[in-house]
């Protein structure tokens, strides 16, 4: 006999898969979008350290790459904290969808 829907629920509502929120995309919340301007990037990684949404991708060498737009909520902390190069920001915020 097949089990009822509620019989399949995990006992005590325990979540068994660690980090499963990665399946829940929050990128759709964004109204502003960070733009990475690589030539102005000094790879300080402040954007990575201060991102509340773990949405700055870093490669095996420890260098930042493109944003993870599946999760970036567009808060703009990265852009504000970006020191840039010679006064030119490596991250700027743009209106989403434009």
């Amino acid at each position: 006999m097949s089990k009822k829907f509620w019989e399949e629920l995990p006992q005590g509502s325990v979540v068994l898969e660690a980090g499963s929120s990665a399946e829940f995309k929050t990128g759709g919340w964004r109204s502003m979008r960070p733009k990475w301007i690589e030539e102005n990037c000094i790879q300080c990684l402040f954007c990575w350290m201060y991102c509340p949404d773990m949405s700055v991708k870093v490669n095996a060498e420890g260098k930042r790459e493109e944003f993870d737009f599946d999760f970036c909520k567009g808060c703009g902390i990265c852009a504000l904290e970006c020191p840039g190069k010679k006064g030119n920001k490596a991250i700027v915020m743009e209106e989403e969808g434009k």
Binding site: S20, S21, E23, T26, D53, M54, K73, C75
Partner: peptide
């Protein structure tokens, strides 16, 4: 602590 959490933007 990974992405996909639902704290407000910029929390």
């Amino acid at each position: 602590f990974t992405h996909g959490h639902r704290m407000c933007a910029g929390c």
